[in-house]
Design a protein around this nucleic acid. Structure first.
Lengths: 314, 314
DNA sequence: GCGATCTCTTTAAACGTTTCAACCTGAGCC
DNA sequence: GGCTCAGGTTGAAACGTTTAAAGAGATCGC
């Protein structure tokens, strides 16, 4: 910047003015400065700027697993929307490990991100609260409101699970199980609870996986698809022997050979909304606690079918 | 930091010393400072530090499509490795759009990333060169060396395609096509060329998709899997009517219902290598132009089978 | 008892911006 | 001609760190 100033015979303050487009600057000067800028290939140093204006124009996205297309899609949308407004995004993986999550968030705080988005927050985590205490706006996409100060993209899991249960019971299923990744640390999991409640309304209870369920609901599509593979490799056909339902509706779920009955969520919309909420909160200079609900509904495909021997043993 | 200094009755320089763990500091002082630090919940401002030390400890990862699990896996590994060394990663999506790519890279330069990694670089892009000119180390994962100054994770597509062609011709296929995403802008695509050369060695030439090929090689697994779906929805069975081979070996390819014959690449290893190359280059203070080759080899699964009527018409 | 030598600590100048207040320079006005 | 006033421009102080160089006590040898 000094070089540009020297070369165009003005002060750095003026250069700053033309870069920022504010403050009055004579047309002649402006063009002279602009020339100098591209002769020198000058690119303003955002870190200096960040230091001065106390804003990094950077968002943190804390994601449990970038390989889950649902999470990836949300993160992608956030990135797009953020880039559009001149924000960059720092992604941090947690691998579902609370210690790593804490570590990552610490790093983000150190880097002074302007806000952090959790595309999937773990149930008991105190992290968002800590961020809010530090004055960092937070938006989570989550099943239900928690700390009132944070932005929430709400998905109505209860309603979705009700649809699932009605579909399944309508097909004659009574022994229904819930499946999630083994290393699930009672985290993220509001879903088994939602299922339990929906079943209860039909006088049912979830059964264990080794109780030969005729249908199983999975915590997400990845698990569901893996389960189908496991079942079929061990000789049980889906949906003839057992029905499987997923959650998220990732792209592969619609593939003819997979044809997974699942709960559809609009990841693109959710990501965009999350980013917009965040951007708005930042612009408003504070935590605007908003909650926006997005619908989720069942899509019936080929992985669910009539129960084999309704109510009977396997 | 001033607060910490005041509270513990020392100068900011001393606080800095204890934070950085360098310079001699008396045990008594150190503990006093540490106490003050956590009483105040002080977190050093990395942006100020970055400005001073002229290093942001941040890497840029420029990725065409975060929804492609192969790219996502590489990015993920980079993030892990980088985090391990105290680096953060800024991800930028290009959506295969050169203009957006340029824009994103400009943003990264403005933010003074210490290096940028391209998990998949577009063929004609001048971008890496520009970065190198600015003194920003670059590593690309790519098919062949280009600018000698950049780090390259090399994959031997020629050898892989040779395996593919041998497998296919061994099954009696002679009319073999190549398929890639429609909006492919002759970018990334060294693969059709590699296929062409491998075929030539058997006296064959690729045919067009509408010439009723008996086998088709896809530019990646996503395309291959989508192709299978399209074919089957239009009544042609895979592999009975047409064989399909992919590239990358993303996780779903191994699923029993998909069972895609494909070229396996170790994304995890590639990501890790890319990150390590970069970290090493940064530590060495320059562009250490290294090329590390990773093997890629064919995995035969169920999506390829004997040609129907060898050499004959569909 | 006095300089030399340690060990620990502080002073102050960066790093590259932004921004506020102050400063010019003409022009317009009476 | 002196006044105000507006448009342009600039000086300099931040922002929160790091780090080289200088300082301040102790300790020690003689």
């Amino acid at each position: 910047m000094h070089d540009v100033a020297r070369r165009s015979g003005v002060s750095v303050a003026t250069v700053s003015n033309v870069m920022r487009g504010r403050g009055p600057v004579a047309e002649r000067t402006r063009t002279r400065v602009l020339e100098a800028i591209d002769e020198l290939g000058y690119r303003p140093n955002q870190v200096a700027r960040s230091l001065k204006v106390r804003s990094t124009r950077t968002l943190g996205v804390v994601i449990p697993d970038a390989l889950n297309p649902f999470h990836a899609a949300i993160a992608l949308q956030v990135e797009r929307r953020a880039h559009h407004d001149g924000y960059a995004v720092l992604v941090a993986e947690t691998e579902n490990d609370p210690a790593l999550e804490a570590d990552q968030v610490r790093a983000l705080v150190g880097r002074r991100v302007d806000g952090v988005i959790f595309p999937a927050v773990t149930e008991g985590s105190a992290i968002p609260g800590e961020l809010l205490d530090r004055g960092v706006p937070v938006v989570v996409v989550s099943f239900e409101g928690r700390d009132a100060r944070l932005g929430t993209i709400d998905i109505d899991e209860g309603a979705a699970m009700t649809e699932v249960v009605e579909h399944l019971t309508g097909l004659g299923h009574r022994r229904i199980a819930f499946a999630s990744s083994g290393q699930l640390e009672e985290s993220i999991e509001s879903r088994p609870e939602a299922l339990r409640r929906a079943l209860a309304r039909h006088g049912l209870e979830p059964v264990a996986m080794d109780a030969r369920p005729t249908a199983v609901c999975c915590t997400n599509d990845i698990i569901a698809i893996a389960l189908i593979d496991r079942l079929e490799r061990s000789g049980r056909r889906v949906p003839d022997d057992v029905s499987v339902v997923g959650f998220d509706d990732i792209p592969i779920a619609a593939h003819g050979r997979i044809s997974l009955t699942t709960v559809h969520q609009d990841a693109e919309q959710m990501g965009r909304l999350a980013a917009e909420l965040m951007l708005k909160a930042i612009a408003a200079g504070g935590h605007l606690a908003t909650r926006v609900a997005v619908p989720a509904h069942l899509i019936v495909r080929g992985s669910t079918g009539p129960a084999r021997a309704p109510g009977g043993a396997g």
